[in-house]
Amino acid sequence: MSTEFITDEVLIMQSEGFLVSDMDGEKVMLSIDNGKYYNLGRIGGRIWELASTPITVGGMVERLVEEYDIEPDACEQQVQRFLRQLADEGLVQVKKA
């Protein structure tokens, strides 16, 4: 599925093949396949944790709005943008719900 179509209804799930560590509250990852290093930061790390089991983007946004001081519309836009980046790098899988 094209990353252009990341909407509230699609399912997001972590891709396999990454070594993940927590460094001072930030998630850092190493791709076993290509050797690339990724630093997801704190909130990006929380998004990664939420994607450990299949979750809709809408469900992810709801959880983040409950946990952080952010408006739902702003959260949705930022999460969709971040998930597109993760999907483009192969870090998450995007599937129709």
Rank of each mutant, 00 (worst) to 15 (best):
A51R: 03
E62R: 09
V92D: 01
F18Y: 15
N34G: 05
Q85P: 03
D69P: 10
V92Y: 05
Q93A: 08
G58S: 05
S52H: 09
Q78R: 06
S2F: 08
A74C: 05
I55E: 11
Y38C: 04
M60Y: 01
D8I: 04
G59I: 01
I70Q: 06
S21F: 13
T3A: 10
K36Q: 13
V92P: 03
S31C: 12
I55V: 13
F82S: 13
C75Q: 03
G45H: 00
N39Y: 01
Q78T: 15
V79D: 02
V79P: 01
L86I: 10
D69E: 10
Y37A: 04
G17A: 05
F18T: 01
L11H: 10
K36F: 08
E16L: 09
S52A: 15
Q14T: 07
T53Y: 09
D22Q: 13
N34W: 04
L40D: 04
I6S: 01
D73L: 06
P72N: 09
I43Q: 07
M23R: 10
E66F: 09
T56N: 03
S21K: 12
S52Q: 07
A87R: 05
V94G: 05
M13K: 11
Y38G: 00
V92T: 07
V61S: 00
L64H: 04
E89C: 08
Y68A: 02
D24P: 03
L19V: 13
V28H: 13
L19M: 11
G90W: 02
L91S: 00
V65S: 00
V94S: 04
I6K: 01
M23Y: 12
M13T: 11
R63N: 13
F18A: 03
K36R: 15
R46Q: 12
K95N: 08
D22M: 11
E67Y: 05
Q80D: 06
R63I: 13
E26Y: 07
Q80F: 01
A51G: 02
Y37L: 08
K95F: 10
S31P: 03
L19C: 15
M1G: 12
V92K: 03
S15D: 08
D33G: 08
V94E: 02
G45E: 05
V10P: 00
